[in-house]
Design a protein around this nucleic acid. Structure first.
Length: 801
DNA sequence: TCCGGGAGCGC
DNA sequence: AGGCGCTCCCGGA
């Protein structure tokens, strides 16, 4: 939004505290008003700059030193609407710059000076420069950054790496504060504490964030992890491939010194930095990060910069603060856990334990510190959550109806008027539902969100192009805000922590689901085969889709007439469905899109959707699934699967399977050194070894680590005598030394393929009793037989190229 | 064999 | 610094 500042005084250049072009002083915040957005008012274009550093590792001190720094600047980005690639190309103004220095200090390759001069003259401005020290590089870099005056800094893992390195090196190289503080908009004299323990060893510390005051930070690594939950790896290389379909060249820090030997290779290094900056910016635009976070921020009234860093809980907090404040409520102060401890002990000393207030406070504290309640330690759940029905496992080949309550928890808050203002604080147990009919703040706020979202969606349908995209972003943000509320009520760190409310909401959810099941089974005489939290699946027993839809419509009608706000809907119809376990199923789903019936395979929870299985097992799993879901008779399916297994086994033995397919991926939840049981975790072992070899990027907390289970040729620890973790190798290790490390095919057969296939097939035989008579196929898929097919084989060993 | 700790899902 | 429910795998008692 635009701000209107009515009374202000300007400052002389010498008095300025910032690097901004204009600086004014106001007497009171009251002279600043937010202008109500009007249709014609356009948002100012933003200057977005992507940053990428290339670094080498100083082994002695175990730190990263900068050899090259690239910036790529997009001068007129729109912040309110998505900018698809064609739009960016049409209206974009791009500029780029790289500064480089030779880490060996041995000068530059022959012809380099001319090469640089040619480049600069060709672009008719300075796009490339070289310096003789890291300090000079940093000075030049900050100067270029200052000239751009960016609103947004973008980078892949910029908050965890580039920003930290820039400031650490500035400190180490004694770069003047008048230079390094140009990375932000505020003039600084002293470097803040860069290291802090408030960020869990991850992301930018408060000190770092204070350095870029006045600019927004968009870390595409963090953003993509937040927005793309299902993506296997959020490394720049993998995202470039999945999102942009571009191959990225990776350069290991160890190889960088070599690249300074010729002009050609040095230019490649520089281009790599510029391309990385570009990729990061492309990912930002692709994910629509700026418009989405802007919308979320406009709804909640928190800081945009915080939204960019995730901060879901804070968004919720600010939204509630604004709402309660506007209704003239006074809210309690927020205390950190530490503050609570201090206050509590002080009061105890001052007033003695008999003080009633203290008892209350202590009770709160005791509740939070009690591990059995799980509020503080992440041990166990603090209260009961959603209801999951026991699945009636099997393969269903008649239409199955999938019904679910839309936005169950937000609707429950409205339906039962659940709020801080309607439910009295009670000592223990789940509180009772309020009898009051006067809507509380929370229900009203939910209704408000629903109403706005409806109107936005309505408006959206009438618009097209960019306006349509903007409104779509907004309605998505409104939904997220509503769904966020329940989770934050149950979070002990939240300012509005209210476990009794969260507990009550969840309890209502369980009862609603159970009531729905009872209604469907007992009164409508239909069979519910599964359900989870807010959904039920009904076996229609029908072959005709129109009849099935009619049954669905009837159920929806019967359920919905029992509620005021709650609404059950048909989310789809399954033509064929394999129900394996709780939270694990797959189906051929039918959906109506633009009036046309679409068919697609939906997979939930099965091994193939998990990142901790190799591509090999996932592909075989999908193959089997397709046979099961599209296949004909039971014996045909079983035989087809069996043949596939034999085929793939032969291909593996012959070395015809690409090595990439053996890669297993696991995420580090903490820095690799922090694991106490590292010796039993393959990915941790791999990360530790790679870090020791100088690879820093990609082996930190929250990174995903790829590995292959191998055995060492001629090694003493043959086969399974060594632990799995010891035999895990990074794909690069296997590729670079393929005579030493061989893929352990037996491991993959027994531990990657067999379990996946056998789980998928477990229900096949039981489902169609009539086909059991043809006992041959059943034998083929019997576990012992599968194992036979997978495991026992001639002990041939193949090499991988 | 049983039991727990982590991953990583579903909702 | 959102919640709980539910497989799975693995290692150790």
């Amino acid at each position: 939004s635009w701000l209107k500042i009515s009374i202000f005084s300007t400052r002389s250049p010498s008095q300025r505290v910032s690097w901004c072009k204009v600086e004014v002083t106001v007497e009171s915040p009251k002279v600043i008003t937010v202008l109500v957005s009007e249709e014609k008012m356009v948002h100012p274009p933003a200057v977005v700059t992507a940053i990428n550093l290339k670094t080498i590792v100083n082994e002695k001190q175990n730190i990263s030193e900068i050899v090259s720094a690239s910036v790529l600047c997009f001068h007129n980005a729109k912040i309110d609407v998505p900018m698809p690639a064609p739009e960016r190309k049409r209206s974009g103004i791009l500029s780029h710059f790289t500064v480089v220095r030779n880490p060996g200090g041995t000068g530059y390759p022959i012809g380099w000076k001319k090469e640089v001069a040619d480049r600069n003259s060709k672009n008719s401005c300075s796009v490339l420069s070289f310096e003789n020290s890291e300090r000079a590089l940093l000075n030049r870099f900050f100067l270029e950054l200052y000239k751009l005056d960016s609103d947004v800094l973008v980078g892949h893992n910029i908050s965890g790496f580039d920003l930290d390195v820039l400031l650490q090196r500035s400190q180490a190289c004694k770069v003047l504060s008048s230079m390094w503080s140009k990375i932000g908009r505020l003039k600084r004299s002293f470097m803040p504490k860069l290291k802090g323990n408030t960020n869990f060893g991850f992301g930018a510390t408060p000190g770092l964030m204070s350095c870029i005051a006045g600019r927004l930070l968009c870390d595409t690594d963090l953003c993509s992890r937040d927005l793309l939950k299902k993506v296997i790896s959020c490394s720049l290389t993998d995202l470039s491939k999945t999102l942009l379909n571009r191959d990225r060249k990776e350069i290991s820090p160890n190889d960088i010194p070599k690249l300074f030997q010729s002009s050609k290779t040095l230019m490649e290094l520089i281009e790599c930095g510029e391309i990385d900056a570009w990729l990061s910016m492309e990912i930002m635009f692709h994910l629509n990060v700026l418009p989405l976070t802007l919308q979320l921020t406009n709804i909640s009234g928190n800081l945009w910069g915080k939204t960019l860093q995730g901060a879901r809980a804070q968004r919720n907090e600010y939204y509630l603060l604004h709402t309660f404040h506007s209704k003239k409520y006074i809210l309690p102060d927020k205390f950190s856990q530490r503050m609570k401890d201090i206050k509590s002990s002080k009061r105890r000393i001052n007033h003695g334990p008999e003080d009633q207030n203290v008892d209350e406070l202590d009770a709160d504290l005791a509740l939070e510190n009690d591990p059995s309640k799980g509020s503080k330690t992440k041990k166990g759940p603090a209260y009961a959550g959603g209801l999951v029905l026991e699945p009636k496992k099997g393969l269903y080949d008649k239409y199955v109806l999938l019904l679910d309550f839309s936005s169950l928890y937000p609707s429950i808050i409205q339906e039962y008027n659940i709020c801080f203002t309607t439910i009295p604080r009670s000592e223990d147990g789940v509180p009772r539902l309020p009898s009051s009919q006067t809507p509380g703040i929370l229900p009203k706020l939910m209704e408000h969100l629903v109403t706005i979202r409806k109107s936005v969606k309505l408006k959206m349908e009438k618009e097209s192009g960019l306006k349509h995209l903007e409104l779509d972003t907004r309605q998505e943000a409104l939904k997220r805000t509503a769904n966020n509320m329940y989770g934050c009520l149950g979070s002990s760190h939240s300012r509005f922590y209210a476990m009794p409310l969260a507990e009550l909401i969840a309890l209502q959810g369980r009862e609603i689901l159970q009531r729905t099941v009872d209604l469907v089974q007992n009164h409508l005489n239909l069979e519910v085969i599964y359900g989870d939290t807010d959904s039920i699946m009904i076996q229609s027993g029908l072959d005709d889709i129109e009849e099935a839809r009619a049954v669905g419509a009837k159920v929806i009608q019967e359920v919905n007439k029992k509620y005021r706000c709650l609404k059950i809907e048909c989310d789809g119809i399954y033509k064929r469905m394999l129900l394996l376990r709780k939270k694990k199923y797959a189906a051929v789903k039918l959906e109506f899109k633009d009036g046309k019936l679409c068919e697609e395979i939906e997979r939930k929870g099965v091994d193939m959707v998990r990142r901790d299985w190799s591509l090999l097992s996932k592909e075989i799993g999908d193959l089997c699934l397709a046979k099961i879901l599209y296949g004909g008779s039971c014996e045909d399916v079983v035989r087809a699967i069996h043949n596939e297994l034999i085929k793939i086994k032969e291909e593996m033995r012959r070395g015809q399977v690409a090595i990439e397919k053996y890669v297993i991926t696991k995420a580090l939840t903490k820095p690799p050194e922090a694991y106490t049981d590292s010796k039993s975790q393959p990915h941790v072992q791999v990360a530790l070894r790679m870090r020791q070899r100088g690879y820093r990027e990609g082996f930190n907390a929250k990174n995903t680590v790829p590995y292959i289970i191998c055995y060492e040729q001629g090694g003493a620890s043959s086969g399974s005598s060594a632990g799995i973790a010891d035999r895990a190798r990074h794909p690069d290790e296997v590729k670079s030394d393929d005579s030493r490390w061989l893929v352990d095919i037996d491991y993959y057969l027994a531990h990657q393929i067999y379990p996946v296939v056998s789980r998928l097939c477990a229900e096949i035989q039981g489902t169609s009793p009539e086909s059991i008579e043809a006992d041959q196929p059943v034998i083929l898929l019997h576990p012992s037989c599968l194992l036979q097919a997978m495991k026992k084989d001639t002990k041939t060993v193949s090499r991988w190229h």
